[in-house]
């Protein structure tokens, strides 16, 4: 599976994780996540993904954006990621990912978003 194909399964992965949805029950945010060149727009309410749209959404405002290279996400989502690729901030520190916008909703719910973005790790080849 390509990183984009993995990320497209995000809503299913979150639906299968009631603990993460519980921990995210106060999250109300719209954000943009870029998997390589492919943008996704996410609207999250009460810890669940209310809207998940692939592709450009012109003039759609979001609170924050998280961008990562294809390689960043591919290596981040290995079952046991290698050192330096295993955390969102490891990726930003090495320049393979970036975060911008209004970071407050991200930092207010940081563990939720880090765990959400790591969910595709659960997809092993063959699924």
């Amino acid at each position: 599976m390509t990183p984009v194909q993995r990320f497209e399964r995000l809503a299913d992965l979150l639906a299968a994780d009631p603990d993460l949805r519980r921990r995210g029950r106060w999250v109300e945010a719209e954000c943009r996540v870029e998997i390589g060149a492919e943008p996704f727009h996410l609207a999250i309410r009460g810890g669940a993904i209310e809207e998940f749209a692939r592709g450009p959404r012109l003039l759609r405002s979001v609170a924050f954006s998280i961008r990562g290279t294809d390689e960043a996400w591919r290596r981040h989502w290995q079952r046991v990621p290698e050192p330096g690729w295993h955390d969102l901030f490891a990726l930003t520190k090495r320049g393979e990912a970036s975060i911008d916008g209004d970071l407050r909703p991200l930092l207010q719910n940081l563990q939720y978003f880090k765990d959400l973005l790591a969910l595709p790790r659960r997809l092993t080849e063959g699924h």
Partner: peptide, 20 residues
């Protein structure tokens, strides 16, 4: 005041723990 200190401290450092 608008970010829970304990939660954000833990969430930041959580990535410094090895996956094993």
């Amino acid at each position: 005041p608008d970010v829970h200190g304990g939660e954000v401290c833990a969430a930041l450092v959580s990535g410094l723990i090895a996956p094993q």
